[in-house]
Amino acid sequence: MTNMIKTESVKHEYTSHTGKSIMALNGIDISIEKGEFVAILGHNGSGKSTLAKHFNALLLPNSGTIMVKNIDTKNEEMLWEIRQIAGMVFQNPDNQIVATIVEEDVAFGPENLAVESKEIRKRVDEALKAVDMYEYRKHGPHLLSGGQKQRIAIAGIIAMKPECIILDEPTAMLDPSGRKEVIDTIMKLNQEEGITIVLITHYMDEAVNADRVYVMEDGMLVMDGTPKDVFSQVEKMKSLGLDVPQVTEICHELRKEGIKLPADILTVEEMVVELCRLK
């Protein structure tokens, strides 16, 4: 397996408007492999968005190094390569769409990369089909729902042929159906196209399908492992101010009452199987 993103003791400090200096990242060591689906959890102010912006050189660390596909993000000559390899989707779908027509917006990235116009056309069509928005290609973005806008934003990144997509709370402003659309799209891209996914979120249910989960607190990684490892530690998650998936929580409560269930149940299906096995 090859490393997609690797960081070594990354620190990032900034001065707040009150003049106090704040350690947003305090020694982050993380290594994300190619094709992996990684979820980064943490409550507001834990530094997870700051970390995400380091992954494609929107921010540079005060100390430590970040390697994206073995390119140091401090290397200014390779800046555009890094941003092409590691695409980024932001929280607010409205504030990342540039053009007034869906297909023009998807073309924005490849146009910046000076791709030939015929090739852009091909990429735009493919990207729109990949997110299932092809029939909306001539629409104005303001007429779409939040989930659809976010899928357009993802298509805009796919058209740049990235190897890794970083999503910074892409579902925070969406309704439940929009959230499902976006998460399904991300999963499909990960499984079918083999694109590395880094999903920053505070919805625990979205992290259940990840290969690995990292939990951040005060600029540090405090937990990592498979979703089962992380979510089975219900008390620890709660002490960090985070929830666990609903099913896991019910399971935890039942276990406290003395019902013999495994601690690492994450989905309704697993719960059903385990409950039927009782008696």
Binding site: N56, L58, W80, R83, Q84, G87, M88, F90, N92, D94, N95, Q96, V98, E103, E104, A107, F108, G109, P110, E111, N112, L113, A114, V115, E116, S117, I120, R121, V124, G156, I157, M160
Partner: peptide, 26 residues
């Protein structure tokens, strides 16, 4: 605030002015 976020999103999508850009529709 929107302008700030849009600028960041444009930068993340490799926008660097008009010099080397190509266009989809010519």
């Amino acid at each position: 605030r929107r302008a700030d976020e849009l600028a960041m999103a444009m930068e993340a999508r490799c926008y660097r002015g008009g010099d080397k850009r190509t266009r989809m529709k010519q």
